[in-house]
Structures are given as structure tokens and as C-alpha cells.
Design a binder for these strands. Structure first.
Length: 214
DNA sequence: CTCCCGATAT
DNA sequence: ATATCAGGAG
């Protein structure tokens, strides 16, 4: 048994178990991914995909979103929750992209984060999945799973992102992000983690603590 | 820290 | 009934 680190074991095991882990938001263009990600706050990507399937068929460019207008946009995304803020931000971001970026999504995390409603996580998702730039977005799943496994201890997504970036080589950041999300959804659920079927329970901090103290 | 917020699973 | 869902802004 070679003496490899827990982080390396976790990456290898998850990649072997979940080779198909990928971005589950459906998109055809960087702009579509940006909008889908902005819509994904506090709701499942499955429901985002249902809404964007209809939305993008009518408007999938900044100019198209602007043409819809606020009320129409709110109506179309209402079922996703937080719809007022989301619609306002998407409209304002579309206006900026149209006015200042020629309608194209910038391939830069800092530029993306200047858009209203776009924070660290959304910017990371866009550059990673649309432009192939290594990034490690920390969403609710990554945050929870990283803590449970013992990969990170920071109390903010930003701290966890930093810890994970230091623990894993750059070329693994994007893949690790998808692997941890996949594990979080299918196995390491927030309410009822299915440790019996977890491929990395053997090195999981939470699992070890749970079986140590019944 | 609170607020935004509907849909779904538990 | 309540926690949770690919968060961000004030």
C-alpha cells in the first residue's frame, strides 16, 4: 500500500467511482451558462434546466433578455424562487454585457464578479465550465462535503476554496469541484448521508468520528 | 447577520 | 412542519 495523502486517495477514488461527473446545468453558450448559474441559487439544477429550456428558446443573448423586460423575465423564472432579485440582476448584467462587452461573456473571474448577482461561486462555475479555466467553485455541496471529509475546516466558502486549491494541483480543481458535488448529491446528502455506499468513507473525518462514538 | 423565495424531500 | 436546494447583496 503506497503512502498517498487522503486528498489524493479521495480524488482517485471519486474519479474512478464517478467518471461521468460533470456540470449538470444545461447550456449551449457561455451566456446561457452564466444565466443558468445565476438562476441556480437555492434551488436544484434540475428545476433550473426545466426553466431555462423554455427561457433560452425565446432569449439566450443579452439583447434577447433585455427585450423580454423585467416583468416577463420574472414570470418565466418565478418557480425557481428568489425571482425578483434574480430577474433584476440578470437584466442588469445583460445590459452591462451588451453595453460594455459587445454582448460577450468575459473570460475573467474578476470582470465576471463585477456583474450584479455574480459572486465568487458563479464566476468560478462560468470560467471553469465555459472556458476551461481551472477554478474551484465552493457551493453548498462542496462546502458540506469538504468539511465532512476533513478536506477543509474554514467557516466561509472563500476559506474552503483556498484550502482545497492548496490541497489539490491546479489541473484537478475543476474536476474535483464536479466530483465533490456529485458525491454530495448522490451519496453525502445534507440530511441523510448514505455512508454505507460512500467510496471514500474509509478516509472520511465525519464517518470515523461517527463510528468511534456511538 | 438578514433578506430574498418557490418547490421538493424528509 | 421544516430543512434544503450549484448564492449574493446590503
Amino acid at each position: 500500500m503506497t503512502n498517498i495523502s487522503n486528498s489524493e486517495f479521495i480524488f482517485e477514488a471519486l474519479q474512478k467511482e464517478f467518471p461521468g461527473a460533470h456540470c449538470e446545468l444545461e447550456f449551449q453558450t457561455p451566456f446561457e451558462l452564466l444565466i443558468a448559474t445565476m438562476l441556480s441559487a437555492q434551488c436544484t439544477d434540475e428545476r433550473v434546466n426545466q426553466v431555462t429550456a423554455v427561457l433560452f428558446s425565446e432569449a439566450n443573448t443579452p439583447e434577447g433578455i433585455i427585450a423580454l423586460g423585467l416583468k416577463e423575465l420574472e414570470n418565466k423564472i418565478h418557480s425557481l424562487g428568489l425571482y425578483h432579485n434574480k430577474a433584476k440582476n440578470i437584466l442588469a448584467a445583460s445590459q452591462i454585457l451588451s453595453d460594455e462587452y459587445g454582448g460577450k461573456v468575459p473570460e475573467d473571474i474578476e470582470l465576471l464578479r463585477r456583474l450584479p448577482g455574480v459572486g465568487r461561486k458563479t464566476a468560478n462555475v462560468v470560467v471553469s465550465n465555459a472556458f476551461g479555466i481551472p477554478a474551484l467553485a465552493v457551493d453548498t455541496h462542496v462546502f458540506r462535503v469538504a468539511h465532512r471529509l476533513g478536506l477543509a475546516a474554514g467557516n466561509t466558502p472563500e476559506k474552503v476554496e483556498q484550502e482545497l486549491m492548496e490541497a489539490f494541483p491546479r489541473e484537478r480543481w475543476s474536476t474535483l469541484h464536479h466530483l465533490l458535488i456529485f458525491l454530495g448529491r448522490r451519496i453525502c446528502a445534507a440530511r441523510k448521508p448514505n455512508c454505507a455506499e460512500c467510496p471514500v468513507a474509509a478516509v472520511c473525518k465525519m464517518f470515523q468520528e461517527d463510528i468511534a462514538e456511538p
